[in-house]
Amino acid sequence: MIAPDRLYDLALVFAFAALSLAQILAMIRLVIGPDVADRILALDTMVVDAIGLIVLLGIAQGTEIYFEAALIFAMLGFVSTVAYARFILRGDIIE
């Protein structure tokens, strides 16, 4: 990271570190389980954290080209969470 020339650069570094730590903690929960409900929840949390990381990258580089990526991440994350949960509940996704 370059030397902080703006006031919020330190906050940006802190936010990157905190979100990365959050991703790692969610990944630990994804691995240790213990049940499929926890794994779905951990995946959902990881998607939300990934959206945060993409937004932070957009701020750090001063561009808006990552916006669509974040939006598609949000949509795919929601649909995959619902599809996974529905598969566990009903044994089928589209009836």
Binding site: A11, F14, A15, A18, L25, G52
Partner: peptide, 27 residues
């Protein structure tokens, strides 16, 4: 500009802390 930068920094720190707390709670 300084004021806006301070507000951005505060929002970034608050957002990062809450996201981290969410994952800590998950674990």
């Amino acid at each position: 500009t300084d004021l806006v930068e301070i507000i951005i920094a505060v929002a970034l720190v608050i957002g990062a802390l809450f996201t981290l707390v969410g994952s800590i709670g998950l674990l």
